[in-house]
Amino acid sequence: MLALGQDEIAKYPFLADAGQYLKDQGFSLDQFGSDPDLKHLIEKAYERIRIAADGKIYKSDLDGDQASNSAALPREVFSFLLAIVLLKLSGMHTLIKRFALAEARRAEKYLERDLANISDESKNQLAIRVIDDLFSVQVKKSDDYFIIPVSDYLKHSVNFHEREWKLINRHVENGQVFLSPHETVRLIRKELGTYINSKIINAKTPTMIPGFEDSVNKLVSLSKKFATYTVITGEYPPCMKHAIEILEKGENLPHSGRFMLATFLLSKGQTVQQIAPLFKNAPDYNERVTLYQLNHLAGTSGSGTQYSCPSCEKLKTQSLCFATSECDNIINPLQFGRKKK
């Protein structure tokens, strides 16, 4: 594990060992529930989750360079650790996912800033090490660029749909890809989210702590707003799983991807009402528009023709195909699993 300074833990709190940190600071969890001077931190933690659930990034006290403010630093870390405790106590997975994603975005900002920091070598060394240790991407600095091996680049970039992330649209030289600090960090966004998510999932759930109940209850009702109706039954082909994953994370799925998923599920006999909630987490979700579009695809409005699911070939050209050996040379995702003996 990396040796971290106070301000670094505040920026990347998920790197810290929570129990150890509290002990080092001389606190126990119970205290936060009972000590009137500390109780507001639970409020702060709840806020941190609520903002994340809304798809926004928690505005940190560290911004505006109050980082030197020694009181702000532990508060910042505490609110993160307490947020995890609240999430564990509430047991709400949708909130955990959203929180992890928002925290990843937040850390991304700091990583990017640290990478670009030319005046303080130790800052960008730390960022480089975080990226290497956590995501096994070997980053080297070269003038204003960060260079990483093509193979490392590919392992991450294949998760992106935008054409500018295709290797052909990158500066490639000598087996390396050249990236800006922003791109370097963007490349590991998904993994950063997954990392934080799994850290939370794997954390022990404490028994209820007096003083935490209110916030936990508020979280439970908050999570209702985001409940996803899992429509997944049976084995779906990798392309569909991937699309659903993106939607569940609240990331943007291109139009072609939504078309693919919707036509696939409609062909599988799902109804418009069953499918619509899947798109709920999309950043640009609009219920009326979504229903209208789905009805159109289903043929229940407009021309009355039901659209069919695109072929694997077509999906390949749209970079929506994530074929595994299980696809077994089928020509349409609807055939997935049928060939199996």
Binding site: S151, L154, V158, E164, K166, I168, N169, R170, A323
Partner: peptide, 26 residues
């Protein structure tokens, strides 16, 4: 360096080699 990369990564690599999927900005 490509010994361990999977199928999707290899597919991306072939797009690079055959100059497929390039955008004008590049």
């Amino acid at each position: 360096q490509f010994q361990e990369i999977g199928s999707r990564e290899r597919s991306e690599l072939t797009d690079y080699i055959s100059l497929r999927g390039a955008i004008p900005e590049t």
